[in-house]
């Protein structure tokens, strides 16, 4: 829905440490379990759906207002209801800067992904809009829309794993050679 701003190709090798020890594979896989748990949490998964409709609530039902990637082309962008901040009263729309779905050419699907599928997807720059793992970590660490997962406003459970713990897990995973779970 929004232009991909980070298409510039970056050397993937740059963040695959050559010195990774074979005995860190298990550690890396374990760290990735944390990454998977967070990415599949409703606060993250709901805007990384398998289909074209964002999801809602813990059960991940389709957005009630029939919102899809085609809504914006028909005069109904996310910002019609979602501001850059959460609504402060019960059941008001959540909000964060640049509230949007991943674009249709870089869909970044989390919904329904097994740990292995998710892992392979994150390592494939054609599926991350050219983001390498280092930039992925920066995205998770700094992006204000990602921040929202830990402060989702009244009535929504935040991601239970603290953000620094997620970032550490991603770094550990990358440092151990970014191994994918079986």
């Amino acid at each position: 829905m929004r232009p991909v701003l980070w298409l510039a190709p970056v050397a993937f090798a740059a963040c695959t440490p050559a010195t990774a020890q074979p005995d860190r594979t298990a550690e890396g896989k374990q760290a990735f379990a944390t990454v998977h748990a967070v990415f599949l949490h409703p606060r993250c998964r709901n805007c990384h759906p398998a289909g074209d409709a964002p999801l809602q609530y813990a059960d991940g039902r389709p957005h009630a207002q029939n919102i899809t990637r085609r809504s914006e082309k028909n005069g109904l962008p996310c910002a019609t209801c979602h501001r850059d901040k959460n609504g402060t009263r019960p059941n008001q729309p959540p909000g964060a800067p640049h509230w949007h779905l991943p674009p249709s050419d870089v869909r970044m699907v989390f919904e329904g992904r097994t740990p292995r599928q998710l892992c392979e997807q994150l390592k494939d720059p054609t599926k991350t809009g050219g983001r390498d793992l280092a930039r992925l970590i920066t995205h998770v660490q700094e992006d204000p829309l990602v921040s929202w997962g830990w402060s989702p406003g009244p009535g929504r459970d935040p991601v239970p794993i603290p953000r620094p713990q997620l970032v550490d897990a991603m770094k550990t995973w990358v440092a151990s050679g970014a191994p994918c779970p079986d």
């Binding site: 029939n66 899809t68 085609r70 809504s71 082309k73 028909n74 005069g75 109904l76 019609t80 209801c81």
Partner: peptide, 24 residues
């Protein structure tokens, strides 16, 4: 008001486009 926004973005909407724009 929603319809005016729809027609500004898409002057010739199909039924599916109307569903996308006005189900909110």
């Amino acid at each position: 008001m929603s319809t005016v926004a729809l027609l500004a973005a898409n002057p010739a909407p199909t039924d599916d486009d109307i569903d996308a724009a006005l189900s909110a």
